[in-house]
Structure formats: C-alpha cells, structure tokens
Simulated scan of single mutants.
Amino acid sequence: MHTTQMKWIAAIVPAICIGLFEFARHEFLHVISMDWGNVLVAVLTGIIFMLFSHGIFTLMENLYGKLQQEKQETAVLQERYRIARNLHDSIAQSLFFMNVKIMDIERACQNRQEPWTAIKDLREAIRFADTELRQHIFALQTVAAEDNIDLIAAMQDHLRQYETQTGTKVNLAITCAKKIPFSSYERKQLFHIFQELLFNIRKHAAATQVNVSLSEQSEAFTLSIADNGKGFVAAENLRQKKSFGYKLLEQDIQSIEADLQLVSIPGAGTTVTVTKKKKKELPS
C-alpha cells in the first residue's frame, strides 16, 4: 500500500464510520435513550478507531522493518565491496610483486648473479601479505555474527589485536558510559568506521603511536583517532575525494547521520574526529 492510499484511507474511513453511527443513532432513537445512544456510539467508534489504528501501525511497522532490512543488506554489500577492494589493493598487488621477484631470482640464478636483494624483497612482501591477510580475517570475524555489539569492548579487542600485529603503540582514553545509546545498526557502523580509520593509518601513515579517545557529552558521542604519522595535505585530499576508501568512509558516516572532521599536517600526523549526535528524548 502506497503512502497516498494510506492518507486517503486515514481521512475517509473515520468520517464514514462516524457518519454511519450518527445515522444509526437517529434512526433507532425511539428504541434506546439518548444517553445510551451516545454511549453506544462512543464505544463502537472507539472499537473501530482501535482496529483502524492497529492496522495502520502494523503496516507502518512492516514498512519500517523492510526499510531496516534493506539498509542492512546495503551495508553488507558495501562491506563486501570494501573488503574486495582492500584485498585487491594489498594481497593481489603483493602476489604480483612476489611473482616479479621470483622471476628476478630465477634470472639472477641463470646469470650466476647474487639473488639476495630480490630474496630480501620477496621475504618482505610475504611478511606484508601475511599481516594484511590476518588483519582482514580479524575484521571479518570481529562482528560478523553479533547483532547487538558492545561497541567499547569490540574497540578494545580490536586495538589489542592492532597493537600486536603492527607494533604500534596504542593509547585508549574512555570518558563515556559503557553502554553507548545508539541502535545496533549505528553501533556496527561506528565500529566499521573505527576499523577503516585504523586500517588507513596502518596502510598510509607509517605511525608509531595512535591515540584513541571515546567521549560523551550531553548531546553527542565523539570518537577521536590521532596518529604521529607522516600526514598529508588534508584540504586538497578532501576536495579531490578520489580515494575509494574515503568514499566508503563517507557513506558509513552519512548512513548514521554523523559528522567527520579531519585535521592533518604533513610530517606531523593526522587527527580524525567522528561525532554522532544523540537522539533527543521527548519530555514525559
């Protein structure tokens, strides 16, 4: 049922019902008293209104459920696309580089030259591919099957794994309640954003230290991630917006109606702040 049809039904059905009851009350006024007629009309009108409201709200709940399901399916497709792109950018390119180095080693052996430089490069490529693959596997396992994610606990586990894998020093400051007041979908998206930001630091920043802050004000929740890496010209990067990872990050940010602020200085690191406003509670 379309929204237009719902509007017409909501306007016409109550009017028709009330008109019929008024007609019935006047038609059978000689059978029952005026007072009992008013009571009967009120009761019948209330029953019809309850049935009508129940039908409308059931329809709205079904439509909302379908909308949420479509949003989740879209999020899953976007996540698969992101993972596929990351695998292409890291694992596939590493395998290509390994193949080139193996050819260099074969050529050096055939020409009776020293292959140690190529072997060293090959060993480094294997180490890099192993780290990348483990990181992707961990990202998939973290919240793949959990519907009601504990956001802070998931972030803490991810940071411990990140510190172990990369050797980067991680500092975590938490000044918010343990239970983040957002929906399951919003918490999942916040965690995906958190993962993507750390992945970009590991891939591009060459940082030795990362400071993560989780804070909560009366109106908003804030996630801040700062690194001491090489940084970049943020304004130019934001104008171009050609990065695949940045586009996906923007989509995740927009899907939960959050705000993203990025401050970066070449040679002095980058700070990314994600702010998600809380829903205002209606006064009781």
Rank of each mutant, 00 (worst) to 15 (best):
Thr3Asn: 06
Thr4Leu: 11
Lys7Thr: 12
Ile16Asp: 08
Phe23Pro: 00
Val31Thr: 08
Val31Pro: 01
Ile32Phe: 07
Asp35Pro: 06
Trp36Arg: 07
Val43Arg: 07
Ile47Lys: 02
Phe49Leu: 09
Met50Ala: 09
Leu51Asn: 06
Ser53Gln: 05
Ile56Gln: 06
Leu59Pro: 03
Lys66Tyr: 02
Gln68Ile: 02
Lys71Ser: 00
Gln72Met: 03
Thr74Leu: 05
Val76Arg: 06
Val76Ile: 01
Leu77Cys: 00
Leu77Gln: 03
Arg85Phe: 14
Arg85Ala: 12
Arg85Glu: 14
Ile91Cys: 06
Leu95Gly: 01
Met98Asn: 10
Val100Leu: 11
Lys101Asn: 12
Glu106Phe: 07
Cys109Gln: 10
Gln113Ala: 13
Trp116Val: 15
Ile119Gly: 01
Ile126Trp: 13
Phe128Gln: 15
Ile137Ser: 02
Phe138Ser: 04
Phe138Ile: 03
Gln141Gly: 00
Thr142Glu: 00
Ala145Tyr: 00
Ile149Val: 15
Ile149Thr: 10
Ile149Trp: 12
Asp150Arg: 14
Ala154His: 07
Ala154Pro: 09
Met155Tyr: 08
Gln156His: 11
Asp157Gly: 00
Asp157Ser: 10
Gln161Thr: 00
Glu163Tyr: 00
Thr164Arg: 05
Gln165Ser: 14
Thr166Ser: 04
Thr168Phe: 01
Lys169Phe: 03
Asn171His: 07
Asn171Phe: 04
Ile174Val: 15
Thr175Ile: 12
Ala177Gln: 15
Ala177Val: 09
Phe182Cys: 09
Ser183Glu: 14
Tyr185His: 10
Glu186Cys: 07
Lys188Ser: 07
Gln189Cys: 04
Gln189Glu: 13
Leu190Ser: 03
His192Cys: 02
Ile193Leu: 08
Ala206Phe: 04
Ala207Ile: 12
Asn211His: 08
Glu219Asn: 14
Ile225Arg: 06
Asp227Arg: 07
Gly231His: 06
Gly231Tyr: 11
Ala234Arg: 09
Asn237Lys: 14
Leu238Cys: 09
Lys241Cys: 08
Gly245Tyr: 13
Tyr246Arg: 10
Gln254Asp: 15
Ala258Ser: 13
Gln261Met: 04
Ala268His: 15
Thr270Ile: 04
Thr273Ser: 11
Leu282Ser: 07
Ser284Gln: 06
